[in-house]
Design a protein around this nucleic acid. Sequence first.
DNA 1: GTAAAATTCCATACCGAGTTTGATTTTAGA
DNA 2: TCTAAAATCAAACTCGGTATGGAATTTTAC
Lengths: 202, 202
Amino acid sequence: MAGLRERKKEQTRQRIAAVALRLFAERGFEAVTVNEIAESAEVAKATLFAYFPSKEALVLGGVAGDDLAGIAARRPPGQPFLAALRAYFRGLAAADVPEAELGALVTRVRVIQDSPALRAAANALLYRQRDALAAALAGEYGNPAAGLIAAQVAASLLTVQESYFQRLLDGMSPADAGRLLAREVELAFDLLEHGVNRLERE
Amino acid sequence: MAGLRERKKEQTRQRIAAVALRLFAERGFEAVTVNEIAESAEVAKATLFAYFPSKEALVLGGVAGDDLAGIAARRPPGQPFLAALRAYFRGLAAADVPEAELGALVTRVRVIQDSPALRAAANALLYRQRDALAAALAGEYGNPAAGLIAAQVAASLLTVQESYFQRLLDGMSPADAGRLLAREVELAFDLLEHGVNRLERE
DNA sequence: GTAAAATTCCATACCGAGTTTGATTTTAGA
DNA sequence: TCTAAAATCAAACTCGGTATGGAATTTTAC
C-alpha cells in the first residue's frame, strides 16, 4: 500500500505546507507569494497547486472542523441533540492541548486571524457545517425552525472558538484558556436551550 | 453642492453598476470579466476600480445591511433590545416591495446566490454587523454573553433573509413570501428569546 | 531484469483581478 | 481666461491560478 510513490507524495505535501506556514508566520499571509513558497519548497508552482487547490488551503488544508451534523445524527436515541453537542464540546474543552502541538497551533491560528482572506475561507467551512446540521435537524424540527437552530448553533460555536483562540494568542496559559472555554461552552448551550430572556433574569 | 462634477460621477457610477448587473444576470458573475464591463461601460479598467474597490462591490456596493447595532442602541429606554429588533423586522416584513423594484431585486439576489464569491462577500458584511452588535450589547450582558447573543441574532437574521429570497427566486409571489417572512421573523425571535427547549414543547 | 504504462513533475505561457504610473483631459473657481 | 485640482486613460505590472506538452520517475507486466 504505502509504496515509494505514496511516501514521496506525502513528504512533498508536508514539506510544502511546512514551508508555507513558516513563511506566513514570518511575514504574513498576503505578503508571501505562492511563487516564493514553490521556490522555497523546491517544486514548480503547478506542482504546488496539484497538492493544494488554493493558497488558503496551504494553511487550512488539514482543518476539517467539527462534524456537527454527524454528532447530532449519531447521538443515542432519546437524547436531545443539544445535549449531545454539549457533551461533545465539554469533552473538547476538558482535553488539554499537548504541549508539543501548542506552538504550531498558536502559530497557525495567528496566521489565520491576521489574514482576512483566511478568515473568510475558514468561515466558508462553517457554512457547510451549518447547512449539514440544518439538514440533519429538518426531520425533527421542520423546515424554517431547523435552519434557524442550525444557524444559531454554528454561530455560537464559532464565537466560542474565536474567543478561545484569542485568549491563546493573548498569551493566556492553555490551562486557563481551557477553563474559560469550558465555562463559555456551558453558557453558549444554556443560551441556545433557554434563550436570551432566561439570561437576563440572572 | 450637486455641481456638474458630482452629477457626472454619479451617472458614471450608476452606468457601470447597471452594465455590470446586466452582464452578470445574462451570463453569471464569474463568466464576465471586469475588462468586458469596463469596455461596455466605456471607461478604463482603472476608472472602474476607482469607483468600485472590487468586482464583488459592483453588485454589493449599495447593500449596507440592517444596522443591528444602531437599532439596539437607539431603542427607547427600558425596552429589551430583542423587542426593538423584532419590531424593526416586523416592520420590514410587513412593508411590501414596490412592484417596480421587485424585478431588479430578484435579479440581484439571483446573481448573488449563484456565485460563491458573492455569497462570501455578502457574509463578510454580516460579520461586521455581528461584531458591531456585540460591542453594543457588551455593556448590558458582559463580554462572553454579548458576543454569543450577537452571533445568534446575526445568524438568525441571515437565515431568515436567505429563505425569503429563496422563495422569491422560486417564483413565489411577493405577498405570499412576505407573509411567510413575517412568520419566520416571529419564529426567529421566539427562538432567540426562549431557546430551543421551549420550541420542542410545542 | 527490462520494457511499457501510468503517474508525477516541471517550465512556460496564459488568464483574470487588481494596482501603479504618468500623461491627458475636464472641471471649479478666481 | 487662466490655473489648480480632480478625473480619466492606456499601458505595463503583480499575483493567484490554470493549461499544455514534454521529461523524469515509479509501477506493472512479462
